[in-house]
Write a protein that binds this DNA or RNA. Structure first.
Lengths: 189, 189
DNA sequence: TAATTTAATTAACCAATGGTCAATAAAGGA
DNA sequence: TCCTTTATTGACCATTGGTTAATTAAATTA
C-alpha cells in the first residue's frame, strides 16, 4: 500500500514552500489547505507533515521572505533622491503598497493573533517595526519621539488593515494612501 | 426518533443569540461553533439552522446591538462637559475603548472580509463611521476636511487592530491610547 | 372533540479541514 | 548482501459548517 517515491521525485521543503506561496498569492491562510498543496505537488498531504510540523510553520516559512522584502523596501527609500520629507512620504506609501499588494501575507505577518504564530511571526514583525522606526529617525535627525513614531506606524497599519479585502491592490487605493501619508506627515511637524 | 420539544422548552431566536453572545465574549468567531452553542442550549445544532440561515447570520444578529452601543457611545460624548478639544479626545479613546473591550465583536464588525458578511456588517460599519464623522464635524464647527476625518478614523482603527489580542482590555493599553489620541488631535490642528 | 396543518427538532448525513501514525519501500552505507 | 535510515503513503481521528427526511408537538380548523 504505502510507498516512497524515487529520488528525483522526492519532496523538498523548497518545493512545498513554493507551492504554498503560489496558492497564498490568490487565497488567504484559512483557504489554502494542506491537502490542496499536496494535490498540486502530487503527493499525499501527510507527506508535508514530514517536512513541516504544521500548517502554521509552513506558512511562516513562506512569509519569511516577505519580511525581508518589506525591510528592504523600507531601507531602500533612504538611498533614493529627494528631500527627507518626500522620502518619509515614500516610506509611508511604501509600507501601504507592500501591505495592499501582499494582502494575505500582510494578514499573516501583522494581523494573525494565533497562539502558535506569536513567537515566530511576532518577533519578525517587531523587527520590521524597528526597521521602520530606524529609517524614520534617520530621516529626521533623531528628533522624533518614540511615541509619535509608534502612532505613525499604527496609523499606517490602520490604513492597510482597513482597505485590505476592500481593494484588490495598492493602485486602487493609491490616492487615499497618498492623502493618508500626507496627513501623517503633517502630524509629525 | 426525531421530535419536537414542549412549548415552554422551545428554542427562540433570542435564546440562541444570547448564548452565542455569551460564548462570543471569551472566544472569537471561528472558535465558537454552532455545535457548542447547541450543546449549551441542550438542542441539536441542526435546530439552530431553523432559526438562522447560517453561522454568519446568527453572529450578525449578535453583533447588531454592539453597533448601536458604539454609536451611542460616540454620540453621548457631545453631551459631556468640557471643551470641544477634550470631547474629541473622548471620542477617540471611546472608540478605542469599545474596540479593546469587545475584541471579538470588533473583529467581526470591522475586520471581517467575508463575502457573506459584507452586505450586512459593512453597511452597519459605514453607519458607525458616518456617526463618527458627524460627531467630529459638530465638535469642530464643520471645519474639518473629510480626508482628515477619514485618516483619523483609520488611525484609530489601526490602534485597535494592532493591540487586539495583544492586550486583554482597554485598561492595559490605556496610556498608549491616550497618547495616540493626543497625536491625532495635534494632527487635526 | 377530531382531523389537519404548521412549526420545531432530531439524527443521520455530506464534504471539508488539520493532524497522527503504522506500514512500507527506496536509498545508502557496511 | 544485509541493515539502517529516510521519506511517503493512505487509512484513520476528531471537528467543523451545513443540509434534509422524518417525526412529533402545538396551533388551527371543522
Amino acid at each position: 500500500m504505502a510507498a516512497r517515491k524515487k529520488a528525483m521525485d522526492e519532496l523538498s521543503k523548497e518545493m512545498i514552500i513554493q507551492e504554498a506561496n503560489k496558492q497564498f498569492l490568490t487565497s488567504d491562510f484559512h483557504k489554502v489547505s494542506m491537502r490542496a498543496i499536496a494535490k498540486e505537488l502530487g503527493c499525499s498531504h501527510g507527506a508535508i507533515y514530514y517536512h513541516f510540523a504544521n500548517k502554521t510553520e509552513l506558512f511562516y516559512a513562506v512569509v519569511e521572505q516577505y519580511f525581508t522584502e518589506l525591510n528592504m523596501t523600507l531601507e531602500n527609500v533612504i538611498q533614493e533622491e529627494g528631500d527627507s520629507r518626500s522620502k518619509m512620504a515614500a516610506v509611508f506609501t511604501g509600507f501601504i503598497e507592500f501591505g495592499l499588494n501582499h494582502q494575505s501575507q500582510y494578514e499573516f505577518m501583522f494581523m494573525q493573533r494565533n497562539k502558535e504564530v506569536n513567537p515566530l511571526s511576532q518577533q519578525a514583525s517587531n523587527e520590521s517595526y524597528t526597521k521602520f522606526a530606524q529609517v524614520l529617525q534617520e530621516l529626521t535627525n533623531h528628533t522624533l519621539s518614540l511615541a509619535k513614531i509608534y502612532s505613525t506606524f499604527i496609523s499606517l497599519h490602520g490604513f492597510v488593515s482597513h482597505y485590505r479585502g476592500f481593494v484588490e491592490n495598492y493602485n486602487e487605493a493609491k490616492e487615499a494612501a497618498i492623502q493618508h501619508s500626507q496627513f501623517l506627515l503633517e502630524a509629525l511637524d
